[in-house]
């Protein structure tokens, strides 16, 4: 049985509208208008134990609505969802004791307290028996290199340090399912790498199921074998990164270094057709975006090398950001 089963999950919000201007404000005193927002339009997916799933989509697509429902703090309008046999919103407190949640932009630590005291408070909140608490705490301190930070008040930690402490805090009670919401937001490169290493270790070695929402596609590429892409309240893609690439077309970029500074005009005269996405020339280097489904990379290379003096060339996949941006563009940015 999958650890998470989601069936036909839908959520409709009502939001109040405000009128413009002074007269509008007066009218707003008397009656208000509301409109319906379909944050989730019926989604289905399963997640097995031990999976590490990336959950991505544009802002307002329904990501956080889904996470809130899975975490038990939001009741859906219709549909079902079970996590380890519990319905999160019906059994909120029991469910809460079994999951860990980290919001990248908010801390659950107590601002004025040393890290260790926040941990001890959470131990009591989660009723973690002393031996288990000690074991989990020591393991987290070791994995996340928290030793030197334990006696520092949270307000004095850097963002990267705070995120590490927050991760530890979310795992002290030994949850088997972890929700990570933008865990690398605002972190510097080294901290991001450390965070990814930790998440990978947690998933591979401890078998903790991880659901990761992020805007950082490097996180996804580094960690996730499976991604769920949501747009306008629907699951657009449930599969691997390759599925995402195929979905928006097999775009590649041919990068050519000429012997002489290349001329955009000459290149554009030479290359045209529906398969051509874009041509950009900077100095001696040209970047030619093309659809590998419509023209074979080898044929394109032959054509370029036969007309120009080429020093070097190579073909690359576009960064996944572009792929995702294309997909989002196709489905429109969702509403708030």
């Amino acid at each position: 049985m999958p650890q998470i089963e989601v069936k036909n999950l839908a959520k409709v919000f009502r939001v109040a509208e405000r009128r413009a201007g002074l007269a509008g404000a007066f009218r707003g005193l008397l009656d208000r208008r509301t409109r319906e927002v379909h944050a989730l339009a019926g989604i289905d997916f399963d997640i097995e134990r031990g999976e590490l799933v990336g959950y991505i989509g544009p802002n307002g697509a329904g990501k956080s609505t889904t996470i809130k429902i899975l975490a038990g703090i939001l009741t859906p309008t219709r549909g079902t969802c079970t996590v380890d046999g519990l319905t999160p919103w019906d059994d909120r407190r029991r469910h809460a004791a079994r999951i860990g949640v980290v919001f990248g932009q908010r801390t659950q630590l107590w601002w004025d307290l040393p890290v260790i005291e926040s941990f001890e408070l959470l131990q009591r909140v989660y009723r973690v028996p002393e031996p288990l608490f000690r074991r989990n705490r020591d393991r987290m301190v070791e994995l996340l290199r928290l030793g030197p930070l334990l006696d520092t008040p949270v307000r004095q930690l850097s963002l990267g340090q705070r995120m590490r402490a927050d991760l530890a805090a979310a795992l002290l009670h030994g949850p088997r399912l972890l929700f990570l919401d933008e865990p690398t937001i605002g972190l510097d490169a080294a901290a991001k790498l450390a965070m990814r290493d930790f998440v990978r270790t947690l998933n591979r070695e401890e078998g903790v199921t991880v659901v990761l929402t992020t805007h950082d596609m490097d996180d996804i590429e580094a960690l996730c074998e499976r991604i769920l892409v949501i747009g306008q309240g629907r699951i657009l893609i449930d599969g691997g990164i390759d599925d995402l690439r195929r979905r928006v077309g097999d775009e590649r970029v041919l990068i050519v270094d000429f012997e002489e500074p290349g001329s955009l005009a000459a290149l554009e005269r030479e290359l045209h057709g529906a398969w051509l996405r874009e041509v950009r020339v900077t100095g001696k280097r040209a970047r030619i975006g093309f659809d590998a489904g419509a023209v074979a990379p080898a044929a394109l290379i032959t054509r370029v090398t036969s007309r120009f003096e080429v020093h070097d060339l190579f073909v690359e996949h576009p960064p996944i950001e572009h792929t995702v941006a294309d997909l989002y563009a196709e489905h429109g940015e969702g509403e708030a």
Partner: peptide
């Protein structure tokens, strides 16, 4: 307003107690 109430809901204790 800050959404921090979610944080309390994510813990296995009565919200009023927290």
């Amino acid at each position: 307003r800050t959404g921090d109430f979610d944080r309390l809901l994510l813990r296995p204790r009565p919200t009023a107690l927290q």
